[in-house]
Design a protein around this nucleic acid. Structure first.
Ligand SMILES: [Mn+2]
Ligand SMILES: [Mn+2]
Ligand SMILES: [Zn+2]
Ligand SMILES: [Zn+2]
Lengths: 136, 136
DNA sequence: TAAGGAGTGCAATGCCATTGCAAAGTTTAG
DNA sequence: CTAAACTTTGCAATGGCATTGCACTCCTTA
């Protein structure tokens, strides 16, 4: 498992510091989008700022993507290895309003609707709110 | 014009106070989603809290809907007269990253993708980021 | 082995949403 | 008409989360 994580970092030219391994591991373990607060709780002795900056680095290297689920907190989820966070790769996210879990639904490709003449799309964020299978 | 606004309020059983008329008028004039800050700027002498609470009332009565465009600030846009903010009525929003304008694209109905078994959708928020026709 | 750069931790700041409370305005019952 | 009850408003305070400044530690490299 540690190898997998180190490889992921290497693949994106991010130096594998202790903190980075921990953050990436936490995100991979949980298999869902996590907020800074949630990560802080999971990584008990890690400093909030360091996690924040780690996530910033990860974003720049396309290791994670941000998820805006309207909960007021930004969440973060791991990208696929070949992800470039391009428009085509943007996928559906689902927020369960009962358990507050935010799922990456990568299998549900999102259709880009026709937008008015002269508009150019660069990035798509499609969120569905409702209740998840665990909560129903 | 004032009649139109008063009618909109009446239609939703919201008492037409001075502040409510001003806020609704501002939203209708601008024809785009506005943040609390933007409204505060437009309505120079209005108190932020009062605008906030006015918007809260408006939301409860389906006079406006919130727009989450990832800018960090919630924006608000006027609903159609017959709107109930149901899943089917949720529409596309477009954020121009150059001029920070958030458009309601009500003519672009959004397709609800297939979600996993056991998941129930209640609300959809589809945002596209890019550049608008004025900025291109 | 010294110097430069990268990563980290703590404290401080900033920004926006939200709330508490009292004053002002409006409606309603008597 | 008038007082009580309710609604709306304004100001000040609070709270939550994102972000930054700065100094310290750690690692790399010449
Ligand atoms: Mn995702
Ligand atoms: Mn809209
Ligand atoms: Zn759930
Ligand atoms: Zn624009």
């Amino acid at each position: 498992m540690k190898d997998v994580i180190e490889n992921k970092l290497k693949l994106r030219s991010v130096k594998p510091t202790a903190m980075r391994l921990l953050v990436l591991q936490a995100l991979l373990n949980e298999k869902k989008a996590l907020s800074l607060n949630e990560l802080e709780t999971i990584l008990e002795h890690a400093d909030r700022t360091t996690i924040f900056r780690t996530l910033k680095t990860f974003q720049e290297k396309f290791l994670v993507h941000r998820v805006y689920d309207g909960s007021g907190m930004v969440k973060y989820a791991v990208c696929d290895d070949d992800c470039n966070c391009s428009l085509q790769e943007n996928h559906l996210h689902f927020l369960c309003t009962k358990c507050s879990t935010t799922y990456c639904l990568k299998d549900a490709p999102i259709a880009i609707p026709t937008i008015p003449k002269g508009f150019k799309a660069k990035y798509a964020n499609y969120l569905i709110e409702g209740s998840c299978s665990s909560c129903n």
